[in-house]
Design a protein around this nucleic acid. Sequence first.
DNA 1: TCGCCGGCAAACGTCCGATGTATCTATAGT
DNA 2: ACTATAGATACATCGGACGTTTGCCGGCGA
Lengths: 231, 231
Amino acid sequence: MALTDDAIAKIRSMIQSGELPPGARLPPEPQLAAQMGLSRSGVREAVKVLESARVLDVRRGDGTYVTSLAPRLLLQGLGVAVELLRDDTLLEVMEVRRMLEPMATGLAALRMTDADLDELGQILEDMRAAADDAEKLIQFDTAFHHTVIATTGNETLTSLLDGLSGRTLRARVWRGLIEGNSAHQTIEEHHTIYLALRARDQLLAQASALLHVNTSEAWLRTVLAAKSADG
Amino acid sequence: MALTDDAIAKIRSMIQSGELPPGARLPPEPQLAAQMGLSRSGVREAVKVLESARVLDVRRGDGTYVTSLAPRLLLQGLGVAVELLRDDTLLEVMEVRRMLEPMATGLAALRMTDADLDELGQILEDMRAAADDAEKLIQFDTAFHHTVIATTGNETLTSLLDGLSGRTLRARVWRGLIEGNSAHQTIEEHHTIYLALRARDQLLAQASALLHVNTSEAWLRTVLAAKSADG
DNA sequence: TCGCCGGCAAACGTCCGATGTATCTATAGT
DNA sequence: ACTATAGATACATCGGACGTTTGCCGGCGA
């Protein structure tokens, strides 16, 4: 299984070395195949792998290009990986979020602008208005935390936490919250975080975020326990 | 660009739904192709993508199987992604480590066993003995932090931090350290962390880890500045 | 001169069939 | 019971062919 994997490694090292900078165009597949000493089929598999990793951008009828290599692209794969984790490891993910998200939220308290706060207040309002719609709650919850973290200006951090808070994971937590009649309380936790951020209080923001993650973790445990009891 | 990507999505959803549990064997490629309504070439590209993501394990002459889906496998891709990040985003990675690694080290202080501490002491000794060998320093440095984090028992956390501390990133920092005659001081920072861990002092471990990451970040800035001045 | 439109060429998307090679298995022999 | 060999199975790689999309450019008309 060497040829195709070698091709992947070669292309990757060409990018890493700067020989193929962001935006660069790769030779056409047949030429690339000749250059690397394998058939076009093998090249296609290699390119497909790098495309799925958001390293290459394949434009049909045009050519294959190196992406911007921005963190938001390269770290996107983390999300799909987390979606595939088994149930018992989701608690590990929560423990990571418990460590990272409060720190990030605290940092956001220092860097947030008034405009950011206004946007956040709007999301909070939307969330309250959607208290009966699980789908919308998940959507606004995602937007709330993403907006907070994004204000740190750290795209790597944002992508990482986005990936760790996958849609399936959030959906499970909210299912538990709603069935446990605790949606309202959790919405208020967002309000608490919002107040801390508006006060630019780093420690308070950090603490309220920790409480919030802890609540999510508790409900995840409930949901997982119920599932393992059923199945 | 639908057929192959559809195949990827289908296989992934079959795994996520539990239809293909860890260890399960997939049908042979020709059969899989027929089942999904595309040619074998397309199936191979799909399988290759999932294999590169450590979701599938392809055994030549045998068949294709679902991996254990352990975090250590699925999060492995993070490492290669970080290796491809551009220089200016490496500081973002350092900021994430600055938040996450101290928390994780503090947690390790609570969970470490005596055997873990002995192993760590040995690594520290090795590091001191290798003070002139950059290659070995990097190796022992990696081992030191990996060992600490691994004692948290959180495989997801360990894989994540391993990925964020890619080999290239570490090599750059140590190059700066050595050229700046600061290798010795940094080795002592490891000693400080070690003492805090041995004392099971969470806060002290956290603080010493933060200082250590901060030192790494400072030297990374130096190295990056020198590079951008050269180039 | 500007803008729309159609055709040409380049490049990726998909398919098919064939051959090489590694692995597993079952059978036969000791 | 154990080993060795032969067959079957399944992935690895190849080569070529054809469809489809895209980008580009020249021509036409306002």
